[in-house]
Simulated assay, not measured.
Amino acid sequence: MRKKVIEFRNVSFRYGDEQPWVLRNCTFEIYEKEWIAIIGHNGSGKSTIAKLLNGLLSPQEGEIIIDGQQVNQDTIWNIRKDVGMVFQNPDNQFVGTTVQDDVAFGMENRGFVREEMIKRIDETLSAVGMQDYLLTEPHRLSGGQKQRVAIASVLAISPQVLILDEATAMLDPKGRKEIMQTVSDVQEKNDLTLITITHDLHEVVQAERVIVMNNGEIWDEALPREIFSKKEALRKIGLDVPFVAILADELKEVGIKITQEPLNQEELLEDLWTLHSRT
């Protein structure tokens, strides 16, 4: 049985006493080495969850427990050593004049010795395919390259939990695919607990579990395949259903028996090929 890393216990939050609740009575658990996707339309509360996890915000009601510690003013700095976050706009995270300076920054603040810093800069940049850009100025990088460096900067401090808050939102489809593959590789290699926060259902297929937010509440929590099967309900709460899921439904309507809800084109093609082979 896997260890609990994160617990939300009846958490509610709002930006000021007179403001509406952004989160209402949210309860969920996330386990060690698990990949969780948190999805929802803009304003659903998903990015607020990310900021609560990293201690950037504090809930008015409920408790947040990370690795056995309740998140509060006394524990926040210890927790931030274990929880790294990559934001939507990597420019907001850059502090160094070169790529290697930026990756070194977090380690310098934590008192890493120089030899260890050099080793980790090389390892983390290699892990995200940016080892050839050590002396490049961050503003000269493409959007996807910037996000890779932002991920490397967080990995360098060896977090237990990595949060990507809409980290691909500013990228084109090719850049999004590349970053998600990088994230998948990094998570597997480093045994991270990974939380990806997005409004794009295409990005949840690799996750083990999906939490769907709607109007500040948990609307559903299930496996990606189960979430994809609820197409009409997802549309009603403002989420776009992936094309492969729509196509599978169209095929069913004309009498083609799709055996399972496909998560991607490869699964659908394999299903169709198997069906063709039997006929």
Rank of each mutant, 00 (worst) to 15 (best):
251 L>Y: 12
80 R>Q: 14
125 L>R: 10
211 I>M: 13
157 I>S: 06
60 Q>H: 10
204 V>A: 11
77 W>Y: 12
118 I>E: 15
204 V>T: 14
228 F>Y: 15
195 I>H: 02
91 D>W: 10
185 D>R: 11
57 L>N: 06
50 A>P: 02
73 Q>E: 13
35 W>Y: 07
92 N>A: 14
119 K>G: 00
252 K>H: 05
83 V>T: 09
265 Q>G: 09
197 I>E: 02
223 L>F: 12
105 F>E: 15
9 R>W: 11
230 K>T: 01
99 V>I: 12
69 Q>W: 00
151 I>N: 04
23 L>H: 12
115 E>V: 03
17 D>E: 15
6 I>V: 13
161 V>K: 13
180 M>G: 00
88 Q>C: 11
97 T>R: 07
279 T>N: 13
88 Q>I: 10
130 M>Y: 10
240 D>S: 15
181 Q>C: 00
261 E>K: 12
205 V>D: 02
18 E>K: 13
5 V>A: 08
137 E>D: 11
226 E>F: 06
196 T>V: 11
143 G>H: 08
196 T>L: 05
22 V>Q: 07
54 N>Q: 03
125 L>Q: 12
267 E>L: 14
226 E>T: 15
75 T>H: 08
173 P>S: 01
65 I>S: 01
61 E>A: 01
170 M>P: 13
235 R>D: 12
112 F>I: 10
256 I>R: 08
245 A>V: 15
159 P>G: 03
51 K>G: 02
231 K>G: 06
18 E>T: 11
118 I>W: 09
141 L>V: 10
85 M>Y: 01
271 D>V: 05
173 P>H: 00
4 K>P: 05
178 E>T: 06
218 I>F: 12
51 K>H: 13
101 D>N: 15
84 G>M: 10
61 E>Q: 10
180 M>D: 01
211 I>T: 06
129 G>C: 08
163 I>L: 04
69 Q>I: 02
108 E>Q: 13
141 L>I: 11
190 N>E: 09
125 L>M: 06
50 A>H: 01
257 K>Q: 10
269 L>S: 06
174 K>W: 00
39 I>Q: 02
161 V>G: 09
42 N>Q: 02
181 Q>G: 00
182 T>P: 00
108 E>A: 05
109 N>V: 10
243 F>H: 13
